[in-house]
């Protein structure tokens, strides 16, 4: 049925190669390829399948935090307590193990602690909506880390390598593919699917784009924020599990500044801190870009500090890219006039 004026509205998206190729994700793919070409030239051992898979082990454990962090950014929220949550949940895993609890149950304890931390974050922020998420999670960041320090002090809690299958979570492989890689890909697909194909995902974008309008559309904004914060706590604990499996022991200073790495991966992936923007494939690409860049620079023994400078510059330049593009377009328009 057309309107009174007989005007018919088109409901099919016309396909355009231009918009297809002018996507941020292609830009990331390009960077990803460039980094791999660079790495392959730096080290003759780089470009082998098993070498590449091994490389992923060097960064994927923290990438589990970047997955829910993308959701946090879509909402226009912030969570900088994730590193501390990873630490406190890994510590509780080790403590539980040393108290004689079977390892499988310890992992459950670890995940529960992370979930609880996320729940605390979420409850504070959804009950007191006027508080800034950055400040609340700064507080809990210090709090969770403080608890871990209070329990362990300078000591470590370890002996986790005694359980072979637990170590294998991090070190184990199926063929040439690390187990952690498989887990990560499954999780990433699930997160991407939920964000782009489900009603829940649509709600996240709606809240991040205009919280008030979302509320008037009947979306339970605070409930959804709570769910996402809890999810973030849970996946910070997943990072905690892999971290404990890698190191075999835990200390109160592990996983520091993981929050910043997770945020940079999400931002580089195209998720704006203002909320409402981003495509999930971008985060996955960004995770591998940063990871492979670090790995490649490590191969030629670039010192850690120089590595930070390079990654910092990469982040700044890439997030500036869309603005630069706009400015070029603007000045071109001006010239044409």
């Amino acid at each position: 049925m057309a309107g009174k004026s007989g005007r018919e509205i088109i409901a099919e998206q016309p396909f355009s190669w231009k918009t297809f190729f002018f996507k941020w994700e292609w830009f990331l793919v390009l960077i990803f390829i460039l980094i791999n070409i660079m790495n392959a030239n730096l080290s003759p051992y780089y470009a082998s399948v098993s070498g590449l898979f091994t490389a992923t082990n060097s960064f994927l454990e923290k990438a589990f935090i970047a997955l829910p962090m993308a959701y946090i950014l879509v909402l226009g929220d912030m969570d900088i307590s994730v590193g501390s949550i990873a630490c406190i949940s890994a510590v509780s895993l080790a403590l539980a193990y040393n108290a004689g609890i079977p390892m499988a149950a310890c992992i459950v304890v670890c995940l529960l602690v992370g979930t609880l931390c996320g729940l605390i974050n979420g409850l504070i922020m959804t009950k007191f909506t006027e508080l800034a998420p950055m400040i609340v999670t700064l507080g809990t960041q210090i709090l969770y880390r403080g608890i871990a320090e209070g329990i362990l002090g300078d000591t470590s809690s370890g002996g986790l390598t005694a359980v072979k299958w637990f170590s294998n979570l991090y070190w184990g492989k199926i063929g040439v593919v690390p187990i952690m890689f498989i887990v990560f890909i499954i999780c990433a697909c699930a997160f991407g699917f939920v964000l782009h194909k489900t009603v829940f995902g649509r709600w996240l974008y709606a809240i991040g784009s205009n919280k008030t309008a979302a509320e008037y559309a009947g979306i339970e904004v605070q409930k959804i924020r709570l769910i996402v914060f809890v999810l973030t706590g849970l996946f910070s604990a997943v990072t905690g599990v892999f971290l404990a499996a890698r190191m075999g022991s835990t200390k109160s200073d592990i996983a520091t500044s993981y929050e910043m790495e997770a945020i940079s991966m999400a931002v580089l992936g195209g998720f704006s801190t203002n909320g409402g923007k981003g495509n999930f494939i971008g985060v996955v690409l960004a995770i591998f870009i940063v990871g492979f860049l670090r790995y490649g620079l490590g191969l030629i023994n670039v010192p850690a500090q120089a590595m930070l400078v390079i990654i910092g510059l990469l982040l700044i330049i890439t997030v500036m890219a869309p603005n630069i593009k706009n400015q070029i377009q603007y000045s071109m328009k001006k010239k044409n006039k």
Binding site: M1, G3, S5, R7, E8, I9, I10, A11
Partner: peptide
């Protein structure tokens, strides 16, 4: 599409 036409919104797509 149907709802936008029902209130006669002036848009193309």
């Amino acid at each position: 599409k149907e709802l936008a036409e029902r209130v006669d919104t002036k848009v193309v797509t």
